[in-house]
Amino acid sequence: MTPKKDKKNLLISNFVCYFEYQSTFMSQHDLIKEIGQIRSLMERSSKFMSISGLSGILIGSYALIGAFFGYVTVYGARTDFRYRDNYITDSGIIGKLILIAAVVLLASVLTAFLMARHKARKNKQTIWNATSKGLLIATAIPLLTGGVFSMLLIYKGAYGLIASSLLIFYGLALSAASSFTFKEARWLGVMDILLGLLALAFPGYGLWFWATGFGLLHIVYGIIVHQRYEK
C-alpha cells in the first residue's frame, strides 16, 4: 500500500472516529438533558412549588410594619435602642399588641394564599393536592403548638418569652415545610430558631429579634426564591 493511500485511509479512519465520538457525545448530552427534565418533573410533583417569593417579601414587610407599631405602642415614638429589662403589664397595651399581631397574621395568610393560588393557576396547577395537604399537616403541628404555648405565656404573664417562643416554633414549622416545598425554607427555619434562642437569652431585645426573623429574613428569603424559581 502506497503512502498516499495510507494517508487517505488514516484520514477516513480519523473522520469515522470523530463522527462516532460526536454521536456518542450528543447521545449522552440528550440523555442527561432528559434525565434533568424527568428529575424536575418528579420534584414538581412531589413538592409544593406554588409559594410565591413575592409573597415572602410582602409578608416580611407586614412584619416590619407591625413591629414598628408594636414598638411605638410599648415604648413611644422617641426612644433609644437599648436593652430593656422591664416588661409589659398593662392590659390595654397587651390588647393593642395582640390586635397588631392579629392584623399582621391575617394579612400574611391572605397574601400567601392569594399569591399561591395565582401562581398555581398561571402554571396550570391546582393549589390543593396531596403535596399541599402534607405541607399543611407538617406545619400545622408546630404552629398550633406554638400558638397554644404563647397563649399560655400570656395567661401566666411571661410576656418576655413570647417573641422567642414564636420564633422557635415558627422555625420548626419552616424546617418541617422544607420537605414539601423550596429547600430554602429549611435555612429560614434554622435562622429563626437561632434568633428565637437569642431572644430567649436576651429578652430585652425580643421585639428586635422578632422583627429580624419575621421581617428581614422573610424579605431575604422571598428575594432568593423569586430570583431562583420565578425568573
Rank of each mutant, 00 (worst) to 15 (best):
M1N: 15
K4R: 12
D6M: 12
I12K: 15
S13N: 14
C17W: 07
T24S: 10
M26F: 07
S27H: 12
I32A: 12
G36Y: 00
Q37K: 15
I38L: 13
R39C: 07
L41H: 11
E43N: 15
K47M: 07
I51L: 15
I57S: 02
L58H: 01
S61F: 14
A63G: 08
F69V: 06
V72A: 11
T73G: 03
T73W: 04
T73P: 03
Y75P: 01
A77K: 12
A77W: 14
R84I: 12
I93R: 04
I94F: 02
L99M: 15
I100Q: 05
V103P: 00
V104P: 02
A107W: 06
L110C: 11
L110E: 05
T111M: 08
A112N: 10
F113A: 13
L114G: 01
H118Y: 13
R121A: 09
N123V: 04
N123I: 03
K124Y: 10
N129R: 11
S132L: 05
S132M: 04
L136D: 02
P142R: 01
S150E: 06
M151E: 09
L152G: 00
I154R: 00
I154A: 09
G157F: 12
I162Q: 01
S164K: 06
L167M: 06
A173E: 05
L174M: 14
A176D: 05
F182L: 08
K183G: 07
A185G: 03
R186W: 04
W187N: 09
D192A: 15
D192Q: 15
G196T: 06
G196P: 02
Y205M: 12
A211M: 09
F214Q: 05
V220M: 13
R228V: 05
K231E: 10
